[in-house]
């Protein structure tokens, strides 16, 4: 089944693949070409990052990564991404709930479009967009530009779709009989939600949260105009890597990049494990 909405980063449990035919000569050739392209484009370059990071040995890698300014950047990035993910868990689930269950709400179609905007909007434009409401010319009279709050807002904006879009299809397919049974036995709405609905949603929420965390940690474009990139204060990891690249310090850039790759890798494995569990249950 396809979900009813544009869901860029929903997990793909349907991709746990059923058994198919064995490769023919033509399809084997196709697989070879595809793998060659994928290697040249993705696998070899990412390997180059890890190899370059380890070129100088463990001591040099560790020194680069634990450099005071780099550590501050990693701390800010991971901390903010974590906080934003917590908010996404609550707000994303709430938004998904309203979109699926509140079928008399006329504004749903508009909300659907709003949720996908952060995915389709270029990140540099996302920064500009937030700056126009929360920057120096804000009609609200607040100015968060060049502060850590700006990093928080940028992450919140770009990670908005993830939890919503992973929870929404699961919520839509949920069997309502158990809820009705519980309600008819006198359970309050809150009890029904906590005891019956929430357990079925947990894997989807977790998958969405992992994706949202990964996206936050790797964010760059939306911060360029918004956060000022002040060292030790608002500089995130991606910006730190970029300034190493611009100073022609590719080894240093690769070391910090390797840390980000490890974080992405852990997240991908986590999502995969969670989805396998979902599939087994379903």
């Amino acid at each position: 089944m396809t979900s009813a909405t544009l869901a860029p980063d929903r997990p793909a449990p349907r991709r746990t693949v059923r058994s198919g035919r064995r490769l023919t000569r033509a399809s084997g050739l196709g697989l070879g070409v595809a793998m060659l392209w994928f290697s040249l484009l993705v696998l070899i370059p990412l390997t180059a990052v890890v190899v370059t990071a380890s070129d100088g040995g463990w001591a040099e890698f560790w020194a680069t990564v634990t450099n005071q300014q780099t550590l501050a950047a990693i701390e800010l990035t991971v901390g903010t991404a974590f906080l934003v993910t917590l908010i996404n868990i609550v707000m994303g689930t709430t938004i998904a709930w309203v979109l699926v269950r509140d079928d008399r709400f006329v504004g749903r179609r508009v909300l659907e479009v709003l949720i996908d905007i952060p995915f389709a909007l270029p990140t540099i434009v996302a920064g500009l967009v937030l700056l126009s409401l929360y920057g120096p010319d804000s009609p609200l009279g607040v100015n968060i530009a060049n502060t850590r709050v700006a990093v928080f807002f940028a992450f919140l904006f770009v990670t908005l779709p993830f939890v919503v879009r992973t929870v929404q299809p699961v919520l839509a397919e949920l069997d309502r009989e158990a809820e009705e049974a519980a309600a008819s036995l006198g359970a309050s709405r809150f009890t029904v939600f906590r005891r019956i609905i929430l357990p079925s949603l947990t894997p989807a929420i977790a998958a969405g949260a992992a994706l949202s965390f990964a996206r936050g940690v790797s964010e760059y474009g939306s911060l360029v105009l918004l956060s000022g990139n002040l060292p030790m204060r608002t500089e995130v990891t991606s910006v730190r890597i970029l300034s190493s690249i611009e100073n022609d310090n590719l080894e240093g850039a690769a070391a910090v990049a390797a840390v980000l790759l490890v974080i992405s890798f852990v997240v991908i494995v986590a999502v995969d494990v969670i989805q396998r569990r979902v599939v087994r249950r379903g």
Binding site: V42, P45, S218, A257, L260, L261, S264
Partner: peptide, 19 residues
């Protein structure tokens, strides 16, 4: 592995290609 590009920072993508 096909989903990896979605969770890699764009700066890391650029760096990887430069390397």
């Amino acid at each position: 592995l096909l989903d990896v590009p979605l969770s890699v920072s764009p700066i890391v993508v650029g760096l990887a290609l430069v390397l």
